[in-house]
């Protein structure tokens, strides 16, 4: 009974929305909106085939490499800058400026500097995704509780052990918030870099469909991007739940009190 109810909550609204869509496309042929059935058909046709290897997987690969490298550089740099007071004062305004530049403008810039290559696309993703992680890490490192920091000090927890057991865990809620922003930025940048300058990849394929007025195909591409976004969000939530279990538990206790 309980699971049935939960299933209802889970699927109720989506089913209703799809029904409305179905009913709306039933009568009139709308040029812009395919029927649910034709979309499903096209989706299978277009994406379950060679395209997976020529467009989808390379895009995902670049995205994964770009985001991961950005996270690593951001965290390492953030710990360094966050721990050294004068370095932070020196760099913070410059970094704030870089963070404020809308990352898509990096596409034409890097295209110019590096040409249209795979590396360029990865660098676009890295250089856009790095800022949220970097600045959030700096902020998180700076905000380590002084009492906790003193405790670690008196017990001789210094150097690498200090980073490993004190600084990183304590900054992890902020770092994860930065990672979340980076992941959605990364997806946006992946698409843009392919739309702007490419002859393959998801973004390129979708723009091709649109230019050739293959509307169901275009929609199916949008669905692929949507699924990719949802997939990334799941991965993130799973990682976050594991890394920040203590944090959520503590918050719950505090809120209950």
């Amino acid at each position: 009974m309980k699971t049935l109810k939960n299933l209802g909550y889970l699927l109720g609204l989506p089913v209703i929305l799809i029904l409305i869509w179905w009913a709306a496309t039933l009568e009139t042929e709308n040029f812009f909106v395919p029927t649910p059935a034709s979309l499903v058909e096209t989706f299978a046709e277009v994406w379950f085939g060679e395209r997976i290897f020529t467009d989808v997987l390379p895009s995902i690969g670049r995205l994964a490499v770009g985001v991961l490298v950005a996270i690593v550089i951001g965290v390492v740099g953030g710990v360094l800058i966050g721990s050294v007071r004068w370095l932070r004062a020196l760099l913070e305004p410059t970094l704030e400026f870089f963070r404020a530049i809308p990352p898509p403008v990096l596409v034409p810039v890097l295209m110019l500097l590096m040409g249209i290559t795979d590396t360029m696309k990865v660098v676009v993703i890295i250089s856009g995704c790095i800022w949220p992680v970097l600045l959030n890490t700096i902020e998180g490192v700076r905000a380590v509780d002084p009492v906790l920091s003193d405790s670690a000090h008196t017990y001789g927890v210094d150097g690498w052990a200090r980073v490993r057991y004190l600084v990183l865990p304590s900054a992890s809620p902020q770092i994860m918030a930065g990672v979340r922003q980076s992941m959605s930025l990364g997806l946006i940048l992946m698409v843009i870099s392919e739309m702007f300058a490419s002859s393959s990849g998801l973004g390129f394929a979708i723009v091709q469909f649109q230019r050739s007025f293959s509307i169901p195909e275009m929609w199916s591409g949008i669905v692929v991007l949507g699924l990719l976004g949802v997939g990334m969000s799941f991965i993130f939530q799973w990682a976050e739940r594991n890394i920040l279990r203590w944090y959520h538990g503590q918050k719950e206790v505090e809120n209950a009190a």
């Binding site: 889970l10 989506p14 812009f32 946006i188 649109q210 949008i222 991007l225 976004g229 949802v230 969000s233």
Partner: peptide, 26 residues
Amino acid sequence: RKATNSTIEFLRPIPSVALIPLAVLM
């Protein structure tokens, strides 16, 4: 809140740039 949760969690991560071709067409 419960009824919209799944839909929100599904729609939210869709990157808005996926709508670019649609925007161009419309």
